[in-house]
Design a binder for these strands. Structure first.
Lengths: 203, 203
DNA sequence: CTAGTCCCATGACATTTGTCATGCCGAACG
DNA sequence: CGTTCGGCATGACAAATGTCATGGGACTAG
């Protein structure tokens, strides 16, 4: 029996290449390819897919949310996350969202088909390097509001911009940014944004 | 006669998938795969490659520099740039470095083999969407030093950090940042970094 | 030669940012 | 019920940032 696979990745070229690569496997059949996370759950249901392979970074609905949607819509379908960046926090978030596997795009190509098979058979697949780092960095120390404000600051706006966007006073925004900077270890706002991003603590 | 192709991309999975995909074409033979730009020129010479397919974003030697190195080492070898981000400035820089083609990773997979063939036959291949944007945004308005300082600021350090890294006085750094902010249209340092980056004006 | 441009630098200034102390409110937890 | 914790806010203050005027040296183009 073949494994029915749905692939979602925002880069068409990567998506196509992955589909072609995995389609060569005798026991894997690619039944759908998506460019964003929004339609993944529906596609999984429509094609009775066994495994959904999702990129974390996608426009619209991100991969983590898409994973949760898939689990809700089709509990029997396993989710394998594939991501470009090995942000430690992503792993934890993905697992909490119900993903069964998590590999980075640096994974040798031939191991990918094997990962799909393991996930399909109910095993968990986690990139070993990533698992180690994940234990290191642990949960995000940021509160919801701190993360929200820091995220709003990530495009370089002023305190006033952020305050307006988040419906907070400027003083409060400064407080949150200050707290976030202390927790992330950054000495400036911009550095904290970068650090939090690298840890996978934002989105 | 087959086209001898060298592929360089820092993501192993993408690299492998591309190689597998293009290797299926009867007239294309993948003779080498690299994970960074440093060894590309040598690999091209060693394998007498006809076309080099390079990612712009790579650790160590970036794709643009690698393209120039290839042109110097083996003028008969054409260069096709493949990039994740369609930064308009990249196109111009790549062309100046001697690249013959430039496509984004959103390109449908089957068009890629065609792009390789066109480049090999001496034609230029440019993503049409990108070409339009490129004309829009034009050359970087930033002076060399301004770009250098802005790039040094991109990881979120303070003025003092940047000054030390660039061997400049703090006042001078502030001047360049101020000028860069005016030219990019950003209202804060962080915003200018983001804008310049999106335009492809930073490396 | 002269004018223009870029690089480098200084100093002064207003604004913004980051820090700290402090307070109120509501929800969670013992 | 009291305590703790997070969200929200204010005000004050030191430090960093962004702006502006200014000037000298090097290099290029007219």
């Amino acid at each position: 029996m073949t494994i029915r696979l749905v692939i979602a990745d925002d880069q068409a070229l990567v998506r196509g290449a992955l589909a072609a690569l995995l389609g060569l496997e005798a026991d894997i059949e690619v039944v759908a390819e998506l460019g964003d996370g929004a339609g993944v759950a529906a596609a999984v249901v429509e094609h009775s897919a066994d495994v959904a392979m999702l990129d974390v970074e996608m426009p619209g609905l991100d991969g983590i949310s898409a994973a949760a949607a898939v689990r809700r819509a089709a509990p029997s379908c396993r989710v394998l996350m594939v991501t470009t960046f090995g942000r430690p926090g992503y792993l934890r978030r993905a697992m909490q969202a119900g993903a069964s596997g998590f590999v980075v795009k640096d994974t040798p190509a031939r191991q990918l088909a094997e990962a799909v098979r393991r996930v399909h058979s109910g095993l968990r697949v986690v990139d070993p390097t990533l698992a180690e780092e994940s234990l290191m960095s642990g949960d995000s120390p940021l509160t919801d509001r701190e993360a929200e404000v820091l995220k709003a600051a990530s495009d370089g706006g002023t305190v006033a911009d952020i305050a307006k966007a988040a419906m907070l006073s400027e003083g409060t925004v400064r407080n949150y940014l200050s707290a976030a900077m202390a927790k992330t270890g950054g000495r400036t706002r911009a550095e904290s944004v970068r650090l939090a991003h690298e840890h996978g603590w934002l989105l």
